[in-house]
C-alpha cells in the first residue's frame, strides 16, 4: 500500500535521523564557550544570516546551541537503545524458550520492572544521587527491557511451533544458534529496529524534560534542547525564537525517529514475507 508515499516518508524521516546523528557525532568537536557567546548587545534577535535561528535572552546564537545540544542526548540515547534492545531481546528469547519455573522467574522479574512508572522512578533516582544523563539513560534503557522482551517473547513462542523452526531443531542446530540467528536476527529484526528508535526517542524526551525542569539534566549555561525550551518561562510573550526552534527540534526529531523506525521495520517485515 502506498509504496511511493512510504518511500518518500522513509527518505524524509531517514534524512532527519541522519542529520541528528551526524550532528551528534560532530558536536563534541565544535569548540563552543557558552559564557563567551553571551552578548547583551544582541538579545532576542530574529533569524538572520549571522544568526540563522536568532539569538536568545542573553544574545547567544540559537543555532550553535541547538547543534551543541545534541551532545546531551546522543551518546546516552545510543546507550539506552543498546541496553534496552540487547537486554530485551535476550530476556524475551530466554523467557520464550524456557519452560516451567525458569520462565516464571524471568517473566515475574520483567513484570516487576514494568510496573515501575518510568519517569517517577527516574525522578526518585535524581533525588537520591543527582545522576549524570548517561546513568539516567542507562536506567531508562533498563526500564524498557520488559516492553521489548514481551514483544520478542510472543514472537519466539509463536515461532517455536512453526514447522521450519522444528525442522532446524531436527537438523541438530544448537538452541542458541536457532534463538539468536534464526529467530532473533532473521525474524525479530524489524521489531528490534522499531523499539531501538523508540527508546532513543524516549531518552531525548527524558533528557529534554529534566533539563526543562532545571534541577536535573543539563545545567545552564551548557545548552540542551530542554533548557532552551525552558526560556519560555522568562520570555513568554517577547520573542518566540529562543524556544520555538528547540521545541520544533524536539518534536521533529522524536517524530522522525519514531516514523523512521516504523517505516524501516515495515519495509523489513515486507521483505521477510
Amino acid at each position: 500500500m502506498g509504496g511511493k508515499g512510504q518511500t518518500l516518508a522513509l527518505r524524509i524521516s531517514g534524512g532527519i535521523v541522519a542529520i541528528v546523528l551526524l550532528l551528534g557525532v560532530i558536536a563534541p568537536f565544535i569548540g563552543y564557550d557558552p559564557v563567551a557567546d553571551v552578548d547583551y548587545e544582541a538579545q532576542l534577535l530574529g533569524p538572520s544570516w549571522a544568526h540563522v535561528f536568532g539569538t536568545d535572552g542573553q544574545g547567544r546564537d540559537v543555532a550553535i546551541r541547538l547543534v551543541k545540544g545534541t551532545e546531551a542526548f546522543f551518546l546516552p540515547g545510543l546507550l539506552a537503545a543498546a541496553i534496552a534492545v540487547i537486554g530485551g531481546a535476550l530476556a524475551g528469547a530466554v523467557a520464550g524458550y524456557l519452560q516451567g519455573i525458569g520462565r516464571s522467574v524471568v517473566l515475574g522479574g520483567l513484570q516487576l520492572l514494568d510496573t515501575l512508572p518510568r519517569l517517577v522512578f527516574i525522578i526518585l533516582l535524581c533525588t537520591i544521587m543527582n545522576p549524570s544523563i548517561t546513568l539516567i539513560a542507562g536506567v531508562a534503557g533498563l526500564l524498557f527491557v520488559p516492553a521489548i522482551a514481551t514483544v520478542i517473547r510472543r514472537k519466539v513462542e509463536a515461532l517455536g511451533s512453526e514447522d521450519y523452526i522444528l525442522a532446524h531443531v531436527a537438523h541438530g542446530f544448537s538452541p542458541a544458534r536457532i534463538l539468536l540467528y534464526h529467530i532473533l536476527w532473521l525474524q525479530c529484526r524489524p521489531l528490534l529496529i522499531r523499539q531501538a528508535t523508540f527508546v532513543f526517542g524516549y531518552v531525548l524526551f527524558v533528557e529534554t524534560a529534566l533539563s526543562y525542569l532545571g534541577d536535573y539534566g543539563v545545567q545552564e549555561p551548557s545548552p540542551s534542547w530542554g533548557n532552551m525550551v525552558a526560556q519560555t518561562r522568562d520570555l513568554a510573550g517577547q520573542a518566540p525564537w529562543p524556544w520555538l526552534f528547540p521545541a520544533l527540534a524536539i518534536v521533529v526529531t522524536i517524530a522522525a525517529f519514531l516514523s523512521f523506525g516504523n517505516l524501516l521495520a515495515r519495509r523489513d517485515e515486507e521483505a521477510i514475507r
Binding site: 524526551f205 529534554t208 524534560a209 525550551v229 524536539i250 518534536v251 522524536i254 517524530a255 519514531l258 516514523s259
Partner: peptide
C-alpha cells in the same frame, strides 16, 4: 503522527 509525537511537556508548554 508528527504532531502527536511531540513530548507532553513541549505540548504543555
Amino acid at each position: 503522527y508528527v504532531l502527536t509525537a511531540a513530548p507532553s511537556f513541549v505540548v504543555a508548554v
